[in-house]
């Protein structure tokens, strides 16, 4: 074990970790923004309309992220018309190619998660909203989407962790993310075990952070499912009442 090599290269790891965090956070924001309309359209009762987002979701869930990233990074470089257009500024950079691939990929997974959660909305909620005279859009905005988001929250936490781990693929196309940094340390000092273990340690730290954030989020948004104090139940015990709300977990 050569710990000194790792200690000397901590700045490189930190730089790489910062790139990883950027890529993951940006792609999650973009992906979520894409996923909501995707899920909305995918739950449409008109089959022809629902087909398109479902085809998108099927494609991005059905192919490896690495293949998608190579299609965007190496594939775009093949077309001269693209290289001559203003779009090349974006596709020229490995960073943007990776970000686009990650965002499109996580959008598909998140979209499917939301679609499932929307489909599982208890009909009583929709009925009540109708009784209040809410329009279709208001119903979606006020009742269906928030309710679906709450149900999808635990599985979304999983998706965020998967995205973090998937982001290591960026290191393959010249980006110096956490994995890219580990590859540099390995190649310079010939210590594969130490250099990749250090990267693994930093990924663990990031995962811990994500788990912690989602625990707080779940405590906050699932507060209504906690048993009430005056009922004399123990705090934090599994709430039997909310069983239907957990059904979404098996998505």
């Amino acid at each position: 074990m050569d710990v000194n090599v790792i200690l000397e290269n901590i700045p490189l790891y930190i730089e790489g970790m910062w790139v990883t965090v950027q890529l993951v956070v940006l792609s999650l924001i973009l992906g979520l923004a894409l996923a909501v309309p995707l899920a909305l359209v995918a739950t449409s009762r008109r089959r022809f309309i629902a087909f398109w987002p479902r085809a998108y979701i099927y494609f991005f869930r059905g192919t490896p992220l690495l293949v998608q990233m190579f299609m965007i990074y190496h594939g775009t470089a093949q077309f001269d018309w693209l290289k001559d257009s203003a779009l090349w500024v974006v596709f020229k950079e490995a960073y943007w190619c990776a970000l686009i691939a990650f965002a499109l990929n996580t959008a598909a997974y998140t979209g499917e998660m939301l679609r499932g959660a929307i489909a599982q909305t208890p009909f009583g909620e929709v009925e009540a909203a109708r009784a209040y005279g809410m329009s279709r859009w208001t119903r979606f905005r006020r009742i269906i989407l928030p309710s679906a988001c709450r149900r999808a929250l635990p599985s979304y936490g999983n998706e965020v962790i998967f995205m973090l781990h998937g982001s290591a693929l960026a290191g393959v196309i010249t980006i110096v993310d956490l994995f890219g940094a580990a590859k540099i340390v390995n190649a310079r000092h010939f210590v594969p075990f130490e250099s990749f273990m250090a990267a693994g340690f930093f990924y663990l730290c990031l995962t811990l952070l994500i788990v912690w954030i989602f625990r707080i989020a779940e405590t906050h948004w699932h507060a209504y499912m906690r048993p009430r104090e005056e009922e004399g139940e123990e705090k934090g015990s599994f709430p039997a009442r909310s069983a239907p709300a957990y059904a979404a977990k098996g998505l």
Binding site: H74, A77, Q78, K83, W88, K92, A94, G180, K183, I184
Partner: peptide, 18 residues
């Protein structure tokens, strides 16, 4: 600095204009 695993990959990205 763009670092590649092999020299061939660097040539490829040079040729396409990256």
């Amino acid at each position: 600095i763009k670092r590649y695993a092999s020299q061939d990959e660097a040539y490829l990205d040079a040729a396409v204009g990256r």
